[in-house]
């Protein structure tokens, strides 16, 4: 009897249609919720990329008097790319950036490593010295730039202490300007290396170190064979971090020398800044930016592939 009553009734209708199915399906719903943010990100990242690509094949600058989307009027094929391939100023800037990276980063690294080693064990005043050591990196880079600008004046404290005459100039000398900038960078960022490397060192199990000592390993041998190998990841992190940041170095240089004398301390960031805001060569800068992006992406991809191979 009950069976019959059931078969006689019409089936209750489920809401039909796409949105109804969305309401039921968690995955579909997720997609729609994410969509607005995703579109926003797309807009922020992808749109400027295409804009840059577009501009890089023209000669457009804001001084042309036409809006940017009309840049096709000054279409220039690959002229910008050809120019950047042979622009001595650009390559000089890249070379100088590399120079700073090659000198400053290892210097900071070794200094930081040495300092970290000193801080492994407790000693009276350790906390105080630790805080003092960290201060340089907490100062705004622009202020650091200002500090060293003052220090390296011909009439400033550096020359006074080294007993050099007031016309022995640092910031305006073609060779020494770079030295002063590198010194400033090392001063500011060694503490970061110190911090990271110390953390790495403290992560080495102390009983293994003790075992090594008992086996007759000298402090140096233990450092090289036990501590360093265990710090590999931390070391890589520290080096990569600082190298990437060094590539972007700007504030220090702009304040200390504005890239001068001439272009002697002009790194890629300073060069691009001057080209963009001083010369207003926006299409040229677009081409440069795009090229750097592609080159770095290729390098990064290769690096990741290499690391993946080593893992597996």
């Amino acid at each position: 009897m009950t069976d019959q009553a059931h078969t006689g009734e019409a089936r209750t209708t489920r809401p039909q249609g796409y949105w109804a199915s969305v309401a039921r399906d968690g995955q579909k719903m997720g997609f729609w919720f994410i969509l607005p943010t995703f579109l926003l990100l797309l807009f922020i990242v992808v749109f400027p990329f295409f804009m840059q690509l577009y501009l890089s094949v023209t000669w457009w600058t804001p001084l042309e008097g036409i809006p940017w989307y009309s840049a096709w009027e000054v279409f220039s094929w690959f002229d910008n790319y050809l120019t950047l391939a042979t622009d001595p100023r650009l390559w000089g800037a890249l070379w100088r950036t590399a120079l700073i990276m090659i000198v400053a980063v290892p210097a900071q690294f070794f200094l930081g490593m040495a300092l970290a080693y000193l801080f492994i064990d407790q000693f009276p005043g350790r906390k105080l010295f630790y805080s003092i050591l960290l201060t340089p990196m907490m100062i705004v880079p622009a202020v650091v730039g200002l500090m060293f600008f003052l220090l390296f004046q011909g009439t400033g404290p550096v020359n006074a202490h080294l007993g050099l005459p007031a016309d022995f100039s640092w910031l305006t000398d073609v060779n020494r300007a770079m030295i002063s900038v590198i010194v400033a960078d090392i001063w500011q960022w060694t503490p970061l290396m110190f911090l990271i490397l110390l953390a790495g060192m403290l992560g080495v199990p102390s009983d293994q170190l003790l075992a090594a000592r008992l086996l007759g390993g000298s402090n140096w041998q233990n450092f090289v064979k036990i501590i360093l190998p265990r710090m590999k990841t931390v070391i890589i992190i520290a080096l990569v971090l600082r190298t990437v940041e060094c590539f972007k170095i700007f504030d220090l240089i702009y304040i200390m020398t504005k890239g001068g004398p001439g272009v002697q301390t002009e790194t890629i960031s300073v060069f691009l800044y001057k080209q963009t805001f001083g010369d207003l060569e926006w299409s040229y800068v677009a081409a440069i930016g795009l090229t750097i992006l592609i080159v770095l992406s290729v390098i990064a991809a290769k690096g990741l592939a290499y690391m993946a191979r080593k893992q597996g």
Partner: peptide, 22 residues
């Protein structure tokens, strides 16, 4: 006239390079 920024900068750079002996 229009183009001045580029012109002056170009000459300026080269003069500076010559003055600093590069």
């Amino acid at each position: 006239f229009a183009g001045q920024t580029a012109l002056d900068n170009a000459l300026d750079e080269e003069l500076q390079a010559a003055i600093t002996g590069q």
